[in-house]
Design a protein around this nucleic acid. Sequence first.
DNA 1: TAAGGGATATGCT
DNA 2: GCATATCCCTTAT
Length: 194
Amino acid sequence: MLSVAFYSRPTLQILEDLIGKVLIRKSGDGLTSGIIVEAEAYRGQDDPASFASRGRTKRSEMLYGPPARAFVYLTYGMHHLFNVVTEQEGFPAAVLIRALEPLEGMALMQQRRKTDDVLNLCSGPAKLCQALDIDLALNGVSVSSPRSPLILIERTNEDEKRKDLAWRPRVGIREGRDRLWRVYLKGSPFVSVK
DNA sequence: TAAGGGATATGCT
DNA sequence: GCATATCCCTTAT
Protein backbone atom coordinates (compact mmCIF):
# COMPACT_ATOMS: atom_id res chain seq x y z
CA MET A 1 0.00 0.00 0.00
CA LEU A 2 1.19 3.51 -0.76
CA SER A 3 2.43 5.15 2.44
CA VAL A 4 1.76 8.59 3.88
CA ALA A 5 5.31 9.46 2.81
CA PHE A 6 4.31 8.81 -0.80
CA TYR A 7 1.66 11.52 -0.56
CA SER A 8 3.86 13.98 1.33
CA ARG A 9 6.04 14.73 -1.70
CA PRO A 10 5.58 17.45 -4.34
CA THR A 11 2.18 17.04 -5.98
CA LEU A 12 3.42 16.95 -9.56
CA GLN A 13 5.71 14.08 -8.70
CA ILE A 14 2.89 12.19 -7.03
CA LEU A 15 0.67 12.91 -10.02
CA GLU A 16 2.99 11.12 -12.38
CA ASP A 17 3.69 8.28 -9.97
CA LEU A 18 -0.01 7.56 -9.51
CA ILE A 19 -0.43 6.53 -13.13
CA GLY A 20 -0.43 2.73 -13.16
CA LYS A 21 -1.28 2.37 -9.46
CA VAL A 22 -4.38 0.48 -8.34
CA LEU A 23 -7.35 2.02 -6.54
CA ILE A 24 -9.30 -0.45 -4.42
CA ARG A 25 -12.75 0.12 -3.00
CA LYS A 26 -14.16 -2.27 -0.42
CA SER A 27 -17.84 -1.83 0.26
CA GLY A 28 -20.67 -3.85 1.71
CA ASP A 29 -21.64 -5.33 -1.62
CA GLY A 30 -18.17 -6.27 -2.75
CA LEU A 31 -14.74 -5.22 -3.93
CA THR A 32 -14.06 -3.12 -6.98
CA SER A 33 -10.73 -1.87 -8.26
CA GLY A 34 -9.02 -0.30 -11.22
CA ILE A 35 -5.70 0.91 -12.59
CA ILE A 36 -5.29 4.67 -12.59
CA VAL A 37 -4.85 5.86 -16.18
CA GLU A 38 -5.56 9.57 -15.86
CA ALA A 39 -5.13 12.15 -13.09
CA GLU A 40 -4.88 15.85 -12.51
CA ALA A 41 -3.06 18.01 -9.95
CA TYR A 42 -4.28 20.97 -7.95
CA ARG A 43 -1.69 22.63 -5.83
CA GLY A 44 -1.49 25.86 -3.88
CA GLN A 45 -3.65 28.94 -3.67
CA ASP A 46 -2.12 30.28 -6.89
CA ASP A 47 -3.58 27.45 -8.94
CA PRO A 48 -6.70 29.07 -10.48
CA ALA A 49 -8.30 25.68 -11.04
CA SER A 50 -8.12 24.77 -7.36
CA PHE A 51 -10.83 25.45 -4.80
CA ALA A 52 -8.03 26.89 -2.72
CA SER A 53 -7.61 29.78 -5.15
CA ARG A 54 -10.73 31.26 -3.64
CA GLY A 55 -9.46 31.04 -0.09
CA ARG A 56 -9.81 28.60 2.74
CA THR A 57 -13.49 27.75 2.90
CA LYS A 58 -15.55 24.87 4.17
CA ARG A 59 -15.42 23.34 0.71
CA SER A 60 -11.65 23.65 0.30
CA GLU A 61 -10.82 22.82 3.88
CA MET A 62 -9.91 19.21 3.16
CA LEU A 63 -7.18 20.38 0.77
CA TYR A 64 -5.37 21.99 3.69
CA GLY A 65 -5.46 18.85 5.79
CA PRO A 66 -2.80 16.17 6.13
CA PRO A 67 -1.84 14.06 3.10
CA ALA A 68 -3.16 10.59 2.22
CA ARG A 69 -6.79 11.42 2.86
CA ALA A 70 -9.67 11.22 0.41
CA PHE A 71 -11.24 14.49 -0.69
CA VAL A 72 -14.66 13.79 -2.19
CA TYR A 73 -17.03 16.49 -3.33
CA LEU A 74 -20.15 16.94 -5.40
CA THR A 75 -20.12 18.89 -8.63
CA TYR A 76 -22.95 19.92 -10.93
CA GLY A 77 -25.29 18.81 -8.22
CA MET A 78 -25.04 15.16 -9.17
CA HIS A 79 -21.49 13.96 -9.71
CA HIS A 80 -18.96 12.92 -7.11
CA LEU A 81 -15.27 13.55 -7.73
CA PHE A 82 -12.47 11.76 -5.90
CA ASN A 83 -9.15 13.37 -4.98
CA VAL A 84 -6.25 12.33 -2.80
CA VAL A 85 -4.84 15.06 -0.56
CA THR A 86 -1.10 15.66 -1.00
CA GLU A 87 1.83 17.55 0.53
CA GLN A 88 2.18 18.87 4.05
CA GLU A 89 -0.72 19.85 6.27
CA GLY A 90 -1.45 23.52 5.73
CA PHE A 91 -0.53 23.53 2.03
CA PRO A 92 -3.63 23.03 -0.12
CA ALA A 93 -2.98 20.38 -2.76
CA ALA A 94 -4.54 17.22 -4.16
CA VAL A 95 -4.65 14.91 -7.14
CA LEU A 96 -7.98 14.31 -8.86
CA ILE A 97 -8.35 10.75 -10.14
CA ARG A 98 -9.91 11.12 -13.59
CA ALA A 99 -10.05 7.63 -15.09
CA LEU A 100 -9.42 3.97 -14.30
CA GLU A 101 -8.98 0.79 -16.21
CA PRO A 102 -11.45 -1.59 -14.52
CA LEU A 103 -9.69 -4.49 -12.82
CA GLU A 104 -11.82 -6.32 -10.25
CA GLY A 105 -15.54 -6.40 -9.54
CA MET A 106 -16.50 -5.79 -13.13
CA ALA A 107 -20.05 -7.15 -12.67
CA LEU A 108 -20.64 -4.86 -9.71
CA MET A 109 -19.38 -1.87 -11.67
CA GLN A 110 -21.65 -2.72 -14.59
CA GLN A 111 -24.58 -2.95 -12.24
CA ARG A 112 -23.84 0.40 -10.59
CA ARG A 113 -23.17 2.13 -13.90
CA LYS A 114 -26.13 0.46 -15.61
CA THR A 115 -24.07 -0.45 -18.65
CA ASP A 116 -22.08 -3.43 -19.85
CA ASP A 117 -19.71 -1.32 -21.91
CA VAL A 118 -16.35 -1.76 -20.17
CA LEU A 119 -14.99 1.37 -21.81
CA ASN A 120 -17.77 3.35 -20.22
CA LEU A 121 -17.39 2.15 -16.63
CA CYS A 122 -14.59 4.33 -15.26
CA SER A 123 -13.56 6.61 -18.14
CA GLY A 124 -14.31 9.85 -16.30
CA PRO A 125 -13.89 11.26 -12.79
CA ALA A 126 -17.59 10.98 -11.94
CA LYS A 127 -18.05 7.66 -13.70
CA LEU A 128 -15.38 5.99 -11.60
CA CYS A 129 -16.98 7.30 -8.43
CA GLN A 130 -20.26 5.75 -9.47
CA ALA A 131 -18.61 2.47 -10.45
CA LEU A 132 -16.71 2.25 -7.16
CA ASP A 133 -19.53 3.66 -5.04
CA ILE A 134 -17.51 6.63 -3.85
CA ASP A 135 -19.59 9.42 -2.35
CA LEU A 136 -19.47 12.09 0.35
CA ALA A 137 -19.53 9.42 3.04
CA LEU A 138 -15.90 8.70 2.15
CA ASN A 139 -14.76 12.31 2.34
CA GLY A 140 -11.78 12.50 4.67
CA VAL A 141 -11.05 8.80 5.04
CA SER A 142 -7.44 7.66 5.00
CA VAL A 143 -6.22 6.00 1.82
CA SER A 144 -3.10 4.61 3.49
CA SER A 145 -4.65 2.54 6.23
CA PRO A 146 -5.19 -1.21 5.77
CA ARG A 147 -8.68 -0.95 7.26
CA SER A 148 -9.78 1.87 5.01
CA PRO A 149 -12.62 1.23 2.52
CA LEU A 150 -10.54 3.06 -0.06
CA ILE A 151 -6.85 2.36 -0.62
CA LEU A 152 -4.17 2.73 -3.28
CA ILE A 153 -1.54 0.09 -3.92
CA GLU A 154 1.24 -0.78 -6.30
CA ARG A 155 0.21 -3.08 -9.08
CA THR A 156 0.85 -6.66 -8.08
CA ASN A 157 2.09 -9.55 -10.15
CA GLU A 158 -1.36 -11.09 -9.95
CA ASP A 159 -2.81 -8.02 -11.59
CA GLU A 160 -0.21 -8.15 -14.33
CA LYS A 161 -1.06 -11.77 -15.06
CA ARG A 162 -4.76 -11.10 -15.01
CA LYS A 163 -4.60 -8.17 -17.36
CA ASP A 164 -1.61 -9.04 -19.52
CA LEU A 165 -1.30 -5.46 -20.59
CA ALA A 166 -0.20 -4.81 -24.11
CA TRP A 167 1.13 -1.40 -23.28
CA ARG A 168 3.65 -0.20 -20.72
CA PRO A 169 2.96 2.78 -18.50
CA ARG A 170 4.14 5.86 -20.35
CA VAL A 171 2.85 9.12 -19.08
CA GLY A 172 1.64 11.87 -21.35
CA ILE A 173 1.02 15.43 -20.23
CA ARG A 174 -1.96 17.37 -21.42
CA GLU A 175 -2.20 21.12 -21.09
CA GLY A 176 -5.82 22.19 -21.17
CA ARG A 177 -7.17 25.70 -21.33
CA ASP A 178 -6.74 26.27 -17.66
CA ARG A 179 -5.79 22.80 -16.47
CA LEU A 180 -2.07 22.59 -16.85
CA TRP A 181 -1.27 19.48 -14.93
CA ARG A 182 -3.18 16.56 -16.30
CA VAL A 183 -1.45 13.28 -17.06
CA TYR A 184 -2.69 10.10 -18.69
CA LEU A 185 -1.45 6.70 -19.69
CA LYS A 186 -0.38 6.82 -23.30
CA GLY A 187 -2.21 4.39 -25.51
CA SER A 188 -4.87 3.50 -22.97
CA PRO A 189 -8.42 3.35 -24.33
CA PHE A 190 -9.71 4.09 -20.83
CA VAL A 191 -8.68 7.75 -20.56
CA SER A 192 -11.59 10.18 -20.35
CA VAL A 193 -10.41 12.79 -22.84
CA LYS A 194 -9.49 11.67 -26.33
C1' DT B 1 -24.92 20.69 -28.16
C1' DA B 2 -27.88 21.29 -24.20
C1' DA B 3 -30.06 20.09 -20.21
C1' DG B 4 -30.01 18.19 -15.96
C1' DG B 5 -29.24 19.09 -10.80
C1' DG B 6 -27.39 20.56 -5.86
C1' DA B 7 -23.92 22.71 -3.06
C1' DT B 8 -21.13 26.63 -2.51
C1' DA B 9 -19.62 31.38 -2.56
C1' DT B 10 -20.60 36.00 -3.36
C1' DG B 11 -23.08 40.10 -3.60
C1' DC B 12 -26.79 42.27 -2.73
C1' DT B 13 -30.84 44.09 0.45
C1' DG C 1 -31.83 36.77 4.80
C1' DC C 2 -32.30 35.85 -0.46
C1' DA C 3 -30.91 35.81 -5.33
C1' DT C 4 -27.68 34.48 -8.57
C1' DA C 5 -23.61 32.64 -10.85
C1' DT C 6 -20.60 29.10 -10.95
C1' DC C 7 -18.77 24.43 -10.70
C1' DC C 8 -12.90 19.87 -11.98
C1' DC C 9 -19.58 16.15 -15.65
C1' DT C 10 -22.56 12.86 -18.03
C1' DT C 11 -26.20 11.48 -20.89
C1' DA C 12 -29.16 11.84 -24.44
C1' DT C 13 -29.98 14.17 -28.62
